[in-house]
Structure formats: C-alpha cells, structure tokens
C-alpha cells in the first residue's frame, strides 16, 4: 500500500484488498454442475406434483447466460421441442431455480394457438444455481431441461 502511495499508482494488491478479495468468488465459481443444492428436494417435490413418472430429460431447450452479470436480472428463454396442434400441445412449462429461497420462477400456460411453446422473461438468482424447466403436454407426459447459471458477485458501484 505504501509503495502505491509513493509511486502514485495503485498496486494490484491494494485494489484486491479494497474490494474484499476473490476467495468467495472463486469458491462459488468452482461448484460443479452436479446441482446438489439445498433447493433440489423442493424442486423434486414440485416435479412430482406435476408428473407421475420422472420427466424425460431433453426436449426443453434453455437459453441462459453461462455467467450472469448480475443476479437481479437474468434473462431466460426456453423452447420446447413439441408440436402445437389441437391434439397434441405443450400445456404448461414450469421454470424453477433450485438455489432461490422459493424455487418457483414462473409457470407458463400455453394453448395450441401459441404456435410454439417458447417464452422469455427475466429472473432473480440468489447465486450460482441450476435452472430447471419442466414441460407438460396435454396428455400429461413431461420432459425437462436444466442448466447451470453462474452468478458473479456484484463488485462495483453502490
């Protein structure tokens, strides 16, 4: 720190100390995509309520930033690979975040008039966590997509 004073610049160390070190971030960022977070049981309970059998993995594409710049506003788009006809269509898509205080984010209700079972919104994420989207067809069958989103810890600017 004193060096920095004398040279009129700021050493890397000073800046790091200033903003509280990187250890927490590093720890949070090395989480494996294994989704073993506390909310997983709650997410499972919601899925169990929706479907009798375990949803098929795949068929629900989640478009999410790999790293969210700020957990307050994370854009999410999902697209279900399924026909949207009067006979066979996606009825519901439940989007969940397994690390939030309450895992439900939004439940979308579609009709054959939707044309495609796709929608976008923005959500709050309390930290790095898994996003799960479960789609239910009008015949009751379900499928599921999931993706890990890393949330960087806001650094600058109050």
């Amino acid at each position: 720190m004193h060096d920095a004073l004398e040279t009129g610049g700021v050493s890397r160390r000073t800046l790091m100390i200033s903003f509280g070190g990187g250890a927490t971030v590093a720890a949070a960022m090395t989480l494996s995509p294994g989704l073993s977070l506390a909310g997983e049981a709650e997410v499972q309970a919601i899925i169990d309520q929706m479907a009798e059998a375990a949803p098929a993995e795949g068929g629900v594409d989640l478009d999410l930033p790999e790293i969210a710049e700020n957990g307050n506003t994370v854009p999410v788009t999902f697209t279900v690979d399924a026909p949207m006809t009067a006979d066979s269509y996606v009825k519901t898509v439940m989007v969940m975040a397994d690390g939030n205080p309450q895992p439900e984010v939004a439940r979308f209700h579609f009709t054959p008039e939707s044309g495609t079972a796709s929608a976008s919104t923005r959500m709050r994420l309390a930290g790095t966590q898994g996003i799960i989207a479960v789609a239910q067809m009008n015949d009751g069958s379900t499928m599921m997509g999931r993706k890990l989103v890393k949330v960087t810890i806001g650094g600058c600017g109050g």
Partner: peptide, 23 residues
Amino acid sequence: QLDLACTHCHVDHEGTLIRAETL
C-alpha cells in the same frame, strides 16, 4: 479510507478485472 482516486480504477487499470468484473 481506501485512498483511491477515480484514475486508479478507470485510467490506470481500465480493462482489467476487479474480482469478477472488468473495470
């Protein structure tokens, strides 16, 4: 208390990372 001027972040270290953020 951190004894920093605007220049330190926004001129001297512009484009570098501070934690996970780019200055």
